[in-house]
Amino acid sequence: MGSSSPETRLAAAAGIRLLAKHRSDFRALIGASGAIPALVPLLKSTDPATQESAVTAMLNISLEEANKGPITAAGAIKPLVYALRTGTAVTKQNAACALLSLSTIEENQATIGACGAIPQLVALLMGGTTRGKKDALATLYKLCSTPRNKERAVSAGAVPLLVELVGERCGGTAEKALVVLGTLAAIPEGREAMAEAGAIPVLVEAMQAGPTRGKEFAVQALLQLCADSTRNRGLLIREGAMPPLVALSQSRSSRSKHKAEILLGYLREQQQ
């Protein structure tokens, strides 16, 4: 595709995008045909339509498990991160999804983080559409399986944005943000950033008024924040967390119940 005209490159990318959209057998045939290495340079096309079609085609192809290794071997990760930074709204969303798809290969998680994807996902979290934010959250969650990527997310300013999204309580976005916050609370830098961003009152509110799964995620994050911090325990008591924790400790959900009981134990110990 490299020596062909811009029109031909756009038509080729759009054709692959369409063929790979719905059928697994077509995805497998495209992967076996040698199209993947030819598609990779188009991920950095200066023509927005060509770049968008190439990124979406790569996303569609990556849905076939057998294609993920060849996509990685063809050097697609760095150009996908470039598209995540430079593309249209649709391009950015689909680049995030393609990276999410490739991150199911565990070794790719470190590579994607090292190629600079985390700050771009945080930027999408800040300025993207609702769908873009959900895609960014899903990809961040998967990438933050590794400690280094957790550190990168905190350094990129993810925590205040996540706290803001939880506070907005917008359906799936708030719940996904809670999950990512819980992941970042696993490292000291994440816990410190959450305390600085005023996460505790927001998490208490989510624990009181959110959906059941949201309450579970909020308790998990609070548990991590308070495990080794008497200061955070004191803040949690002052925010009125005891009554909702007592209610959760008596709930049917074994996950919420157990975590709420542990957290209550910390707070009662603090009060003695």
Rank of each mutant, 00 (worst) to 15 (best):
E269D: 14
S249W: 11
I30S: 05
E205K: 13
V154F: 12
G182E: 08
L264M: 14
A186L: 14
L42H: 07
A185D: 05
Y266N: 00
A186V: 07
Q250V: 00
S145L: 12
P188W: 13
Q272L: 13
I187L: 15
I200T: 01
R238K: 12
L143K: 02
L263I: 02
K259Y: 13
A20H: 05
V154H: 07
T129C: 07
I105R: 14
L10T: 02
K68Q: 15
T91C: 10
L236D: 01
A57M: 09
E175Y: 04
S253A: 09
R255W: 12
L59W: 15
C115N: 13
L264C: 10
P188H: 12
A218E: 03
A73L: 13
Q270L: 14
E65V: 09
T212R: 14
G167K: 01
A153V: 03
V40Y: 11
L181R: 00
E216G: 11
A199T: 00
G265C: 08
L181N: 05
Y141P: 00
L140E: 11
G167V: 06
L42Q: 08
K92G: 05
V163Y: 06
F26M: 12
V246G: 03
Q272D: 13
Q93Y: 08
P48R: 09
V179G: 04
A193P: 01
E192W: 00
V219L: 10
P147Q: 12
S229G: 10
S4A: 15
K133P: 01
R238S: 05
A95E: 09
T8F: 14
G214H: 03
L39D: 04
A14T: 11
T173S: 08
